[in-house]
């Protein structure tokens, strides 16, 4: 029998993060199975971006373990690509002095692949433009292309719908749904989260308050109190 590599996806087990006296995350456990999309929602300051930063290695957990496909994950940012992890940033984070194509080429030297990924994300016609000259929605697409060009096994999307219009969010949803990789999504836009996610984790003040399918989360009273209720 040929050896089959384990494919457990990303597993976070009992992750806690403390900054001095402030607890940013406490006892967070989560699994992102291969090919699935898991959403993380919660009010501002709930610890969503800290969770991303733990996975990326920008923040070291105070306690807890991370594994990716059965192997311990002790992430260092510049090694994420080798481990098959890519991330987009809340504020787009494109290099303003580089063209759209150059932005994508930073992570991948294969020009054909970079252009094909831009095409897939609907930004190919802007390949020679500088980001500052582009509408925000196009910049978001370029940022997504820059993450996807590395052909990740796990894609971390940090508020990809922020600043987008209704039509653009629908198109983004279609794009995410069509991805073959695992996706961990932090997002405030509930329609998008409920549409594209297989599972959702709800955080409040760094603690998990609910975890389940979109339908389960919709009817969860703790979620309504912590997040949806506050928004209503």
């Amino acid at each position: 029998m040929p050896h089959q590599p384990p494919s457990d996806g990303l597993i976070l087990h009992d992750i806690s993060v403390r900054f001095g006296g402030l607890t940013a995350l406490e006892g967070v456990s989560l699994r992102v199975p291969p090919g699935r999309t898991v959403g993380v929602i919660g009010p501002n300051g709930a610890g969503k971006t800290t969770l991303f930063n733990v996975v990326c290695g920008f923040v070291a957990p105070t306690s807890g373990q991370l594994t990716l496909d059965g192997r311990p994950l002790r992430p260092r940012p510049h090694q994420l690509k080798k481990r098959g992890i890519a991330r987009t940033l809340q504020g787009v984070g494109l290099f303003p002095s580089l063209t759209v194509l150059e932005n994508v080429l930073v992570g991948e030297s294969d020009r054909d692949r970079a252009e094909a990924t831009l095409e897939r994300c609907g930004a190919a016609s802007y390949r020679d433009e500088k980001p500052a000259a582009l509408p925000y929605a196009i910049r978001k697409r370029v940022a997504l292309a820059r993450a996807l060009v590395t052909d990740p096994r796990l894609l971390l999307l940090d508020e990809p719908a922020g600043g987008l219009g209704v039509q653009e969010i629908e198109e983004l949803g279609e794009l995410i749904t069509g991805l073959s990789c695992s996706v961990l999504l932090v997002e405030h836009h509930m329609d998008l989260v409920m549409t594209v996610c297989d599972e959702i984790l709800v955080l409040d003040f760094g603690k998990p308050v609910a975890h389940g399918t979109p339908d389960e989360i919709r009817t969860d009273e703790a979620v309504a109190d912590a997040y949806l209720g506050a928004a209503a």
Binding site: P77, H78, L89, F95, P96, S97, L98, G107, R146, T150
Partner: peptide, 19 residues
Amino acid sequence: LRMRAAAFAPDVSRLLGVN
């Protein structure tokens, strides 16, 4: 290209695999 990216935004560059 990677030198230019690393000079401008080192953290973002690291996420893209730049040493």
